[in-house]
Write a protein that binds this DNA or RNA. Sequence first.
DNA 1: AGACTCTTCTGTGATCTATT
DNA 2: AATAGATCACAGAAGAGTCT
Length: 404
Amino acid sequence: MPLLAINLSDKLFVAIKDLLEKGQYQTYESFLEIAAFNQLALERGATPAEIIERGHRGIRDNAESTNGVHDQRPTSEETAAKATATTQKRTGKPVARATTEPRTVAAQDIEAVFMRLAKTVRGEGSPAPCKVAADRDIGDHVFGQVNRLFPIKLACRWLATFSAAEGKWPKLGAISDRMADDAATVGSLLEQWDNEASRKRDEQLSTGLPRRGNSSSRDRFLSQFVARSTRGGEIYPGAICQYGLAKFVDSAIVLTEQGLAFAQTESPVLDTKDKKTPTALSADETDFLVRQVLSGVPSERNDMQIILAAVQEGKTTPSDLTTTVQSKFPREWTQGMALTHISGLVARLAELRLLRRQWQGRHVTYELGDKVDEFLKVSRTKSAMNDDNGHLGNERVGNRQRPE
DNA sequence: AGACTCTTCTGTGATCTATT
DNA sequence: AATAGATCACAGAAGAGTCT
């Protein structure tokens, strides 16, 4: 009998596992076998309705009963759904939509994570933060998938607390799993809070954080917000480094003075645990980040200036904004890349309260936040002083650069 | 009910790199 | 050289909200 090994996405695997746990299938093998029979039946011209009518449950029970020929009786509605969904191309609407009910996070898990994220008093045994390297690569754009800044706060706090407890700055490889686990627990918890409060899309606290049981989202969190290391030992810093809040020193991840100060700022989520907080970052935290962008993140400052200036000129719809600013980004960027980049910038500006999204029906328009004039004034002055830093030429995109 | 706009973020597949 | 595993860019699915 041939042996097949296949890769399944986490989502698909969990969906199958759920059916197994409900007792609807005996083994993964029987599920996949039934799925294969159903697909073959479809290929022979049977309709999903016919497959349902003939039924399938108990295929394994009967499978070996007739001279090794498997009973081709798919029965359940799940099978019909799968059969439809696995045809070559999606032609119509999905047969079923996976439920998105939030995973409940156990109280003791939450308590443990908040303990690990609690503000700590740093004593003599705590390692000192570093200064931002003067020669760090400041030309890189923050990647568009960095669409929230609270995950950066979480990473800074985690590093501050961990380093105080351990007495040293950790190596990335030693802590990335634990940090991602804790971020996913917080993400799932905030998702629960969002659901309880019926928060709308722009108001959700959990956006940008990974979720428990979703390894892809954990990978995304680490690679976009913290850093990614290759088997060859190379480290590609994420947004936490691009924002000048952390730095790699001999493959240990070290908070900068600014990163430590940001970590220690009171958080409505991590400290107050305020379920009703309207935003994941407090006004103090966003003010801190705005100052940080203005003083130490030239490429981000310039990108933000481009967007805000366009909105100030009246380009307040997504299409107007895109048309206006696309030419100001690297020429080799495809439209998709530019859209991703602009989308991320708009989302970060909204979290920093420099931009507001106003929904009129299904259309959105952008409005300037209260402190934009001040931001633009400082930003333009700095751009004029450091024109080399402000140049947006052919820099690499996102976090794809090597550390010093 | 279906279409539509916009945002978020996962999954895909080509390509690169490491290991055997 | 062959194979396995990792990485990357980005397409497009999914979700939310609303309109027709």
